[in-house]
Simulated assay, not measured.
Amino acid sequence: MRYCGIDVSAKPANQQLVTLHERRGADAQELVATFYEPGDVDAVARTVLGFGGEAVAAIDAPSGPRLDLLAAGLPLRMELGLPHGRYERMRVCDALLFRRRLPLYPVPSADQALSRWETWMAVGFELFAALDGLELFRPPAAGVHEAPVGDGALRLGRLCETYPDAVFCTLLGHRPSPKRTPWGLQQRIAALRLRGVVDDDGGLWHRTLDELDACAAAYAAYALAAGQGCWVGDAREGVIVLPTLGLAERYDRLPPPARSALSAPRRPPPSTR
Results as ranks from 00 to 15, higher is better:
residue 44 V to A: 01
residue 45 A to M: 03
residue 48 V to P: 02
residue 49 L to E: 01
residue 49 L to D: 03
residue 51 F to Q: 06
residue 53 G to S: 15
residue 54 E to V: 06
residue 56 V to S: 06
residue 58 A to S: 08
residue 58 A to E: 03
residue 59 I to P: 07
residue 62 P to K: 01
residue 65 P to L: 00
residue 65 P to A: 09
residue 72 A to M: 13
residue 73 G to A: 12
residue 78 M to I: 13
residue 79 E to Y: 10
residue 82 L to Y: 12
residue 83 P to M: 09
residue 83 P to I: 08
residue 88 E to W: 02
residue 90 M to D: 13
residue 90 M to C: 09
residue 91 R to F: 00
residue 92 V to K: 00
residue 93 C to A: 15
residue 94 D to K: 01
residue 95 A to C: 09
residue 98 F to Q: 13
residue 100 R to Q: 06
residue 100 R to T: 06
residue 102 L to V: 07
residue 102 L to N: 00
residue 102 L to K: 01
residue 103 P to V: 02
residue 103 P to D: 08
residue 105 Y to Q: 11
residue 105 Y to G: 03
residue 105 Y to F: 15
residue 110 A to F: 05
residue 111 D to C: 02
residue 111 D to Q: 08
residue 113 A to D: 14
residue 118 E to I: 05
residue 119 T to D: 12
residue 120 W to S: 04
residue 121 M to Q: 10
residue 122 A to Q: 12
residue 122 A to E: 12
residue 128 F to L: 07
residue 129 A to L: 09
residue 136 L to F: 08
residue 136 L to N: 04
residue 137 F to W: 07
residue 138 R to L: 11
residue 139 P to G: 03
residue 140 P to R: 11
residue 141 A to W: 13
residue 142 A to P: 10
residue 143 G to R: 11
residue 143 G to Q: 09
residue 145 H to V: 07
residue 146 E to T: 09
residue 150 G to W: 07
residue 153 A to R: 03
residue 153 A to W: 04
